[in-house]
Design a protein around this nucleic acid. Structure first.
Lengths: 192, 192
DNA sequence: CGATTCTTTGAAAACAGTCAATCTGTGTGG
DNA sequence: CCACACAGATTGACTGTTTTCAAAGAATCG
């Protein structure tokens, strides 16, 4: 259960056994069934979540009831709402499980303690934040400059491991297009 | 010249005179004329830039020669390409001055030194990174779920100080719509 | 299998983009 | 100071893409 997380950490930074132990000691395990919520709009998010197995999605629901997927989190990814965590305000996002999933949770207090006490952990988090930011910039670039077809094609290249695992209507939602448009793109281009 | 930056820092964190001095001592001043490049696609970016006066834009140019604006940086904002800085790879972005501008530059080495040596500076940068990330998430949300009209309206609300200062065709480029579409939106809604 | 979820298809409508021309304001050089 | 060039903004007509709405067809799960 923890071995996935331990491997994740040791793949990224060099860290002592003792430090690893103190990280693991503040992790709690949570299992989510498909469609189960981890966070609902209006809740205040106070945790850090690491996905060990399965897949989560973070999304908003607009006035018309349409879902807009902000991100997917599969094994070895993080999930949560940094905005609610940092501001203490209710979240505008929903997070639920796309598949039955297993996640590790760390409280914000313990997380801050780890950042303070364990330089390697801090370094790892900084690196992840940097990469996340760069990925967000790329996604903005794609969203404002690509056609629907180019967006789907870029998605397949960037996240091949996601494409065969996530329902197409969720991929469409992630890309900001309708399921019908995605279906037609796939038909026209024969991209599968 | 440095007072803008000093105020920026002291507004955000508590810091000693001595620490402020060491920050200022590694800053160099650069003046940019309108349209002058700070970074060109293909260059490797090795700096941190803080805008004291004026306005910069970060953008890409696609195969068809169309510009897509990633971000604007006015007074009290940062500019640069974190991706190129962190990976050491050539930048895919161009940065140039929308208006005659004055900026402060810090080398990556000195910047890292400041992060290491001055906890308050480190804290400030972490906060900025967090806020930037949250802003990027919001922009993604807008890009994938709003109509052109809603995008413009959200832009006016979020950056009222930018709207009257930047040519409309650049605003359009930032929003991912054509100048013609933006012009028609403005006419229809009487939003100015 | 029965229900639900997911995907596809068709036709019409809405939306945004393209192309070309004109209009406006600004600034520059003669 | 005027004429002109130029960048920016607008407009019109047209095209093309994407959405919407409605329905039907697959696939999957319990």
């Amino acid at each position: 259960m923890f071995d996935v997380f331990i491997k994740y950490i040791t793949d990224r930074v060099s860290i002592s056994e003792k430090e690893l132990d103190s990280i693991i000691s503040v992790c709690s395990i949570k299992r989510l069934r498909r469609k189960q919520y981890l966070l609902q709009e209006g809740d205040i998010w106070k945790l850090i979540a690491f996905v060990v197995k399965g897949c989560l999605r973070t999304y908003t629901v607009d006035e018309q009831g349409l879902e807009h997927i902000n991100s997917f989190s599969i094994e070895n990814w993080w999930a949560g709402d940094r905005e609610s965590l940092l501001t203490g305000k209710p979240s505008i996002y929903n997070i639920d499980a796309v598949e039955d999933s297993e996640i590790l949770l760390i409280t914000h207090e313990n997380y801050n303690m780890l950042l303070r006490e364990i330089p390697a952990f801090n370094q790892m988090v900084t690196d992840i934040h940097n990469k996340s930011f760069i990925a967000a910039q790329k996604r903005i670039h794609i969203a404002i400059s690509y056609t629907a077809e180019q967006k789907y094609s870029a998605f397949l290249e960037t996240y091949p491991q996601l494409a065969n695992r996530i329902p197409l209507h969720m991929v469409a939602s992630y890309l900001g297009i309708t399921p019908e448009t995605l279906s037609r793109i796939r038909k026209l281009t024969n991209i599968k």
